[in-house]
Write a protein that binds this DNA or RNA. Structure first.
Length: 368
DNA sequence: AATACGGGGGA
DNA sequence: TCCCCAGTATT
């Protein structure tokens, strides 16, 4: 007859309370002083968690401070222009996070009287709030014992509990969630979850973990077996596609430059950019194609000048190789044209992807 | 289950 | 180079 157990089988012979205590007291003692840890305002916890998705703490800090200064609460973000929100997110990447956050904040403003909901069901229906962020907000802002499984947590627990499931597989996250439901401190789920992540960031790092400094070393099965460097198991993804582009920085006699808003869906949605096109080898030189496409796409006659630079920009799933030219334009923009003429000063108000910021920097060097 | 979606930094 | 990062939405 199977032995009856109140815990997940992977926790057999595991000192749950000792582990909770050692982790939480270490976090109380050693946690970093971070701007989103000054209070537990659910809105600020929420903003920080969205910004921290796939993004390092050091990168997020200045963005978080500036964002909270501009949008200090639910109402201010709900009522803001989307372009201002994108500008505040400029350079941080994964821009749908910003648009989803504002959309969800508007829903909380309108449907929840401005109070961030505190149940898994309600909170996980908000745009941009998935399983990880649901658990993070609930535990950190409201003290609800929900798992918050991110990359850190999977790495740390794969070592502690010797879990060899491939963390690249979607279903593996559920394995960790089920274990954590039995492992999490019901008294202090906030510090338990944050402690796991802090440990992953500071001690139990991907390569060469600092096991000799680890507060939960005596609980770690991988350390006991000497296999901590073999975990977690993670299959690697495939490489990126190459895309060749040609772009133009076009100025008129009054010093106005042509920019263009990207489509509302897909890569870099709703951000601004200099006119550019996918280059096709069979259709002549980059310069010829730029000239031709400005005419057919925008009905605009341009004169092309010097080659500015070649910008290489790496995304997670593709690589842009952009040939950049200067040029000039004259006359009228077509009715309904997507092109907007702006001065150098006005350009500062628009959110550009980093690749196009770099094109602009290179252009400024050539006119010095 | 696989893919799209940014950008920076470390080894 | 390759990998990782306080992941989510879409297909």
């Amino acid at each position: 007859m199977k032995k009856e157990s109140t815990h997940h089988e992977r926790l057999d012979d595991f000192d749950i309370y000792g582990f909770q205590h050692d982790l939480i007291t270490w976090f109380e003692r050693e946690q970093r002083d971070l701007p989103w840890r000054k209070d537990q305002d659910p809105y600020k916890v929420w903003v920080s968690e969205i910004m921290l998705q796939q993004t390092k703490v050091d990168t997020v800090i200045p963005y978080f401070n500036s964002f909270i200064e501009q949008f200090p609460n639910i109402q201010s973000l709900a009522e803001a222009e989307e372009d201002r929100v994108l500008k505040a997110w400029e350079g941080l990447g994964y821009y749908s996070r910003a648009r989803n956050l504002q959309s969800a904040v508007r829903e909380v403003h309108e449907s929840y009287a401005g109070i961030v909901p505190n149940t898994p069901k309600e909170i996980s229906t908000l745009k941009g709030v998935g399983p990880y962020t649901t658990g993070a907000i609930l535990s950190i802002a409201y003290g609800v014992p929900e798992p918050a499984v991110d990359g850190n947590v999977m790495r740390v627990l794969s070592r502690i509990l010797l879990i060899r499931d491939d963390i690249a597989k979607p279903k593996t996250r559920k394995v960790f969630e089920e274990v954590i439901r039995d492992l999490i401190s019901k008294e202090n789920p906030s510090f338990f979850n944050q402690g796991l992540m802090e440990l992953g960031a500071m001690v139990c790092t991907p390569t060469s973990p600092s096991c000799l400094l680890c507060p939960v070393r005596e609980h770690c099965r991988a350390f006991a077996e000497g296999v901590q460097r073999e975990l977690p198991v993670k299959t690697k993804k495939k490489s990126t596609k190459q895309v060749a582009l040609v772009a133009g920085i076009f100025k008129d006699k009054d010093g106005r430059f042509l920019i263009h808003r990207r489509p509302s869906e897909g890569l870099l949605a709703n951000l601004w950019e200099f006119p550019n096109f996918v280059k096709v080898d069979e259709l002549g030189t980059a310069k010829q194609q730029l000239l031709q496409l400005m005419k057919t796409e925008y009905g605009l006659n341009v004169a092309l000048g010097e080659y500015v630079c070649d910008i290489k920009h790496v995304f997670s799933h593709l690589v842009w190789d952009v040939n950049v030219y200067v040029g000039s334009w004259d006359g009228e923009l077509l009715e309904g044209s997507d092109l907007v003429p702006v001065t150098e000063e006005e350009m500062k108000e628009f959110a550009f992807p980093v690749s196009h910021q770099n094109m602009w920097k290179e252009y400024l060097k050539t006119v010095e």
